[in-house]
Simulated assay, not measured.
Amino acid sequence: MHRVDYLTHIQERVLSCIRRHIAEHGQAPTVQEIGEAVGLRSRSSVHYQLVELEAKQAIRRERGRSRGIRLR
């Protein structure tokens, strides 16, 4: 696992949501599922958090796939 820079509280919640969903369902959650799980109403807010997590190398995203989030 890669070392990540400091994560904000919401980034930690998003990352935890992704880890939990993969463990329980065998695949990453959708943007909508992440938003519902962590209390973010807009998809753009979730996208922003995913961009930040990718920049901090906590996740890797596969463009064009609804469940294209991979843990690093």
Rank of each mutant, 00 (worst) to 15 (best):
H2I: 06
H2P: 15
R3W: 05
R3I: 09
R3A: 06
V4P: 02
V4D: 01
V4A: 03
Y6T: 10
Y6R: 13
Y6W: 13
Y6C: 06
L7S: 09
L7G: 11
T8F: 13
T8I: 07
H9F: 09
I10H: 05
R13G: 08
L15N: 04
L15R: 02
L15F: 15
S16E: 04
S16A: 13
C17T: 15
C17P: 01
C17H: 03
I18L: 00
I18F: 04
R19P: 04
I22H: 05
I22C: 12
I22M: 04
I22Q: 11
I22W: 08
A23K: 08
A23R: 10
A23H: 13
E24I: 07
E24K: 14
H25D: 09
H25T: 15
G26K: 03
Q27S: 12
Q27V: 15
Q27F: 15
P29G: 11
P29T: 07
T30W: 02
T30R: 06
V31E: 01
V31T: 07
I34P: 01
G35D: 03
G35A: 06
G35P: 00
E36D: 05
E36M: 10
A37F: 11
V38S: 02
V38P: 00
L40S: 02
L40C: 03
L40P: 07
S42T: 03
S42Y: 04
S45N: 13
S45V: 00
H47G: 05
Q49E: 14
Q49Y: 14
L50S: 09
V51G: 06
V51E: 13
V51S: 11
E52I: 01
E52C: 03
E52A: 05
L53W: 12
L53A: 00
A55T: 05
A55Q: 08
A55G: 07
K56F: 10
A58E: 13
A58K: 05
A58R: 11
I59C: 03
I59D: 04
I59Y: 09
R60G: 09
R60H: 15
R60T: 14
R60W: 14
R60M: 10
R61F: 14
R61C: 09
E62M: 07
R63G: 10
G64Y: 13
G64F: 12
R65N: 11
R65P: 06
S66M: 12
S66W: 09
S66A: 14
S66Y: 07
R67A: 03
G68S: 04
G68M: 10
G68R: 02
L71S: 02
L71W: 15
L71A: 10
